[in-house]
Nucleic acid binder design. Structure first.
Length: 267
DNA sequence: AACCGTCTCAACCGCTCATGT
DNA sequence: TACATGAGCGGTTGAGACGGT
């Protein structure tokens, strides 16, 4: 629709990446960082579309990726985050160091949906399934080509509002492009969820739920209803486990805490 | 061993959003 | 302000792996 293709498709490879292509991409990014994806393939001598290079790097080649099975804790965290955020895979991935949005999305579709259904929970709404027909609401039949996109998540933030509402409290910018969580400002790797050492950074759960511009001026007696919300607490992490929001409350935000979820409780 | 159905996950596609001019 | 461009996101696809018969 009037938009030029992202690359000259006639001269690009498609399908699985070869080892040689991987090596070229890795070598190029090591030498030059993740610059302009559009021009990267040519510069790196790859017959690939820039998007394809980015995807390959983000989902497979990044050195900080955690390969292997998801742990039960990760399962539960994904479920809880999904109940809050809906299909915002990049946001969810941002809370799981070393995991990619694509990986989580696949894992959700292949494992967690089924797990929730087995628990009698609708994977889209996170509510108890009613009777026998609830499984029809976009359940574990991802291969059905007639499957329509799931309806908007009842508890999720509307897609358009995400950027305004979830103004993630970011750490200071790190100029080092080697640190693979660099994302140029908005990325699937999650607004800097991990440190360069791979440590989880719970402060990134300090999602600012206030509508409108990210608060930048000092809050003079911020009304409770307008305070940022600490989701760590809601997710059951407050109090030293992984959340440092409380410590951050000396900063510009004074957090409002959601009551934590109880065992077996979903939103 | 061969066939077939199912599952998994890397990759693609089309769209939206952010940014620059 | 409007438009162009590039980056990123989420849904979908398809090849290969796997398990059952």
């Amino acid at each position: 629709m009037g938009r030029s293709p992202c690359c000259e498709k006639a001269h690009t490879n498609k399908g699985a990446w070869t080892k040689e292509e991987d090596q070229r991409l890795i070598a190029y990014i090591r030498a030059h960082g993740e610059g302009c994806w559009r021009s990267l393939p040519k510069a790196a001598g790859l017959l690939r579309c820039g998007k394809s290079c980015r995807l390959r790097w983000m989902n497979y080649l990044r050195p900080d990726l955690k390969r292997g099975n998801f742990t039960d804790d990760e399962d539960e965290l994904i479920i809880r985050l999904h109940s809050l955020l809906g299909n915002k895979w990049s946001l969810i991935a941002g809370q799981l160091p070393g995991r990619t949005d694509n990986e989580i999305k696949n894992y959700w579709n292949t494992h967690i949906k089924r797990k929730l259904l087995a628990r009698g929970i609708d994977p889209q709404t996170h509510r108890a399934l009613l009777g026998g027909n609830a499984a029809s609401s976009g359940d574990g039949a991802p291969r059905n080509k007639s499957t329509r996109p799931a309806p908007p998540h009842p508890t999720a933030v509307p897609a358009k509002a995400t950027s305004a509402i979830f103004a993630v409290t970011k750490p200071p910018p790190v100029p080092d492009r080697d640190s693979s969580d660099y994302d140029g400002g908005r990325s699937s790797s999650g607004g800097g969820t991990t440190t360069s050492t791979g440590e989880p950074r719970c402060p990134d759960l300090n999602l600012d739920l206030s509508v409108g511009p990210t608060p930048s001026s000092p809050p003079a007696e911020t009304p409770t209803s307008q305070r940022p919300v600490c989701l760590c607490y809601h997710l059951g992490f407050r109090g030293g486990e992984a959340c440092s929001c409380q410590a951050d409350s000396s900063g510009p935000h004074e957090f409002t805490y959601f009551r934590p979820l109880e065992r077996g409780q979903y939103i």
